[in-house]
Simulated scan of single mutants.
Amino acid sequence: MKLKKDEVYNELKILRENAYVPYSNFRVACIIYLKDGNKIKGVNVENAAYNPSICAERTALPQMITQGYNKNDVELVALYTDSEGFGSPCGTCRQTLFELLLENQPIWVYNKKEFINSYDVKDFLPYAFTSKNIG
Rank of each mutant, 00 (worst) to 15 (best):
L3I: 01
L3W: 01
K4P: 00
D6W: 01
D6H: 04
E7H: 04
V8S: 02
K13N: 07
K13V: 08
L15W: 06
R16G: 01
N18Q: 14
V21W: 04
V21I: 13
F26L: 10
A29R: 15
A29N: 08
C30Q: 04
C30E: 05
I32P: 01
L34D: 00
K35A: 10
D36E: 02
K39H: 04
K39N: 09
K41E: 15
K41D: 09
K41W: 06
V43Q: 01
V43W: 01
E46Y: 12
N47D: 15
A48M: 07
P52E: 05
S53R: 12
S53N: 13
A56H: 15
E57P: 09
T59V: 14
A60G: 11
A60W: 11
P62F: 15
M64V: 06
T66A: 15
Q67K: 15
Y69S: 00
N70K: 09
N72A: 05
N72G: 15
D73A: 07
V74S: 04
E75T: 11
E75F: 06
V77F: 13
Y80Q: 10
Y80T: 08
T81V: 03
D82M: 14
S88V: 08
P89A: 10
P89Y: 10
T92G: 13
T92H: 13
T92C: 05
Q95D: 06
L97H: 01
L102N: 14
L102M: 12
E103H: 10
E103Q: 09
Q105E: 07
P106E: 07
W108K: 01
V109E: 13
Y110Q: 05
K112R: 13
K112E: 11
K113N: 07
K113I: 09
K113V: 09
K113D: 10
I116G: 03
N117K: 06
Y119C: 06
Y119H: 11
L125I: 10
Y127T: 06
A128P: 02
T130L: 00
K132V: 01
I134P: 00
